[in-house]
Design a protein around this nucleic acid. Structure first.
Lengths: 238, 238
DNA sequence: GCGGGTCAATTGTCAGACAACTTGCCGGGG
DNA sequence: CCCCGGCAAGTTGTCTGACAATTGACCCGC
């Protein structure tokens, strides 16, 4: 059974998606009644939205919908394919290789396994190579049958769909590199071309590391956004 | 007068900073009493922290402190200098130029002014050029006297210190580019070198755009991190 | 016309209660 | 001795009702 708070947060998210910026939301008592929760629970959900900057509340006046900040930004963990789909791009997987091999000491330490599966593939947008992705996961995390059947380019999507283990977040280091060797070759660019690189670690709800990945993107096709907020400490200082 | 919720959120932030990962927080009734607020207000603040991933709550058990994810990440809007200072790097400003000029149509539209001030400068780490920054702001936003006296490389820091207008967030587009012309020259790298580029827009609490900036970083010196969370929609699906 | 007071509406906070859940303890039965 | 079931205490989750603080509009008297 899903808890009232989660239900409320979801409902509010959807309500905001349907709302125009600047619009005034129903008052808290009314909203609470509509959603079937108490005002206290509703306020917890609204506070979270306020912290994320999606609404503005003015005591004695009402609650307003903020103009949406970047929505396809980097805050939410979604696969390249899902990102592309949401902007109407036609994306497919090109050449792929799957290797089983022994983990090197670093990988064994981080992932907690002896053997790993390494998945390399090219991502095509409108038929043109735009990204080269390498995932390294512990052997057995994804069944071989699943991998051959449901894998269309995104390890993340397969893991999310499987539901087990429960993923929570990833941390990525962002850098710029020049294309070399195999990467340049697969992306069909000359050596020394400029690439945007993400080095990511994917964690479960329990804080366990389950996927190490490296992504190389050709600049221009995908646009990555981040929203950075002024910190509490500085922003609200007198 | 600062409101109880803000006081509580701040106090909790500080409490977490002093806590060890995995530690159990006092129960909600006790914490509420310690902080001098009701349990409802406390819970609003805790919910926000939970959403940001800093604590984990387990019904019937207690509230745990999460191992800190990247702290010098990109979620919080701080200047390059502040970032560098927090990791003990010696950073200073190199050559700088300040131009007053008429705004081009795009800038006039976005910033809502006719004349702009353009600030260009090189950032040195340990005496070596590592970044080239260009800020474009409306004329009059920062007084000339202030600019010559308090400017040490970061427009953001000057604006934050001034307190007026109240800043809230910035959106950045991240890309990789090759160094060209003036940028390559100022950073003392050869043309065609790989650079990490941020194109940022800085907004106030009222949603007004006040600063357009472009930043070019030499890869390797600064490391930028992002934390990406599994979305509500997917993460909690059955 | 204008100034001030009043009033309704809305968000902010509080107090108390009960529900749902987890863990550990303790006692009884095997 | 071990296992297991129920009980009790403690914690988070939610609800109810109330009052405080703030804002904006209305109305009335001057």
């Amino acid at each position: 059974m899903i808890k009232p708070y989660q239900r409320t947060a979801l409902a509010l998210d959807e309500l905001l998606d349907r709302s125009q910026p600047g619009e005034v939301l129903p008052s808290e008592p009314k909203l609470a009644e509509q959603l079937g929760v108490s005002r206290a629970t509703l306020r917890e959900a609204m506070r979270a939205l306020e912290d994320r900057g999606r609404i503005v509340r003015r005591q004695g006046v009402g609650t307003y919908v903020r103009p949406t900040i970047i929505e396809a930004g980097l805050e939410e963990l979604v696969s390249i394919e899902s990102m592309a789909a949401s902007v109407g791009l036609d994306v497919e997987m090109g050449d792929s290789e799957i290797h089983r091999r022994n983990a090197n000491p670093d990988e064994a330490e981080l992932l907690g396994v002896d053997k790993v599966v390494e998945i390399r593939r090219v991502i095509l947008a409108e038929g043109v190579p735009v990204a080269y992705l390498v995932d390294t996961i512990g052997e057995g995390l994804i069944q071989e049958a699943v991998l051959s059947r449901e894998f269309h380019g995104s390890v993340l999507d397969v893991l999310l769909k499987g539901g087990e283990p429960e993923l929570e977040y990833s941390t990525s280091e962002i850098s710029a590199v020049s294309a070399e060797g195999r990467v340049a070759d697969r992306l069909r660019v000359s050596e020394g071309s400029v690439l945007l690189q993400f080095e990511a670690s994917l964690f479960t709800k329990d804080g366990e590391l389950v996927d190490l990945s490296q992504s190389y993107f050709l600049p221009g096709t995908f646009k990555f956004h981040v929203v950075r907020r002024v910190g509490r400490r500085l922003g609200t200082a007198a």
